[in-house]
Amino acid sequence: MLHIINKATPDASLEQCLALIDPQQDAVLLVADGVLSALASYAYWPRGLAVFVLSRDIEARAINAYLAPHIQIIDDAGFVALTEQHTQSISW
C-alpha cells in the first residue's frame, strides 16, 4: 500500500494513516503541504518506514535542509514508479 499525504501536520490524516500503516510493506509519499510533516524537528515518521517526499514540493518551500535524515527525496518520475510498485494506494 502506498499512502499519499498532502496535508501539513497537525492533521487527522496523519494520525489515521499512521494507525493503518504496515511498516514492513507500505510506503508513505508526502506531497504538497504534506512535505511539512517530514521536518526533522517533528520526528513524526518512525525510522524503518519508507517515507518519500516530492522534490518539487520541498524545493518550492525551501525546506531541504530541515528534513529528517531518513526521508527520501524523489522526482515526478519517482512518484510514478511508486505507483507502479504498489498495486494499492490511499490518498489521505
Binding site: N6, V31, A32, D33, L54, R56, D57, D75, D76, A77, F79, V80
Partner: peptide, 15 residues
C-alpha cells in the same frame, strides 16, 4: 485552494 490539480498535472506528465 489546494495544490491538487497542479500535483496531478505533474504526475500526469511524468506518467
Amino acid at each position: 485552494d489546494s495544490q491538487a490539480a497542479r500535483s496531478a498535472l505533474y504526475f500526469s506528465q511524468a506518467l
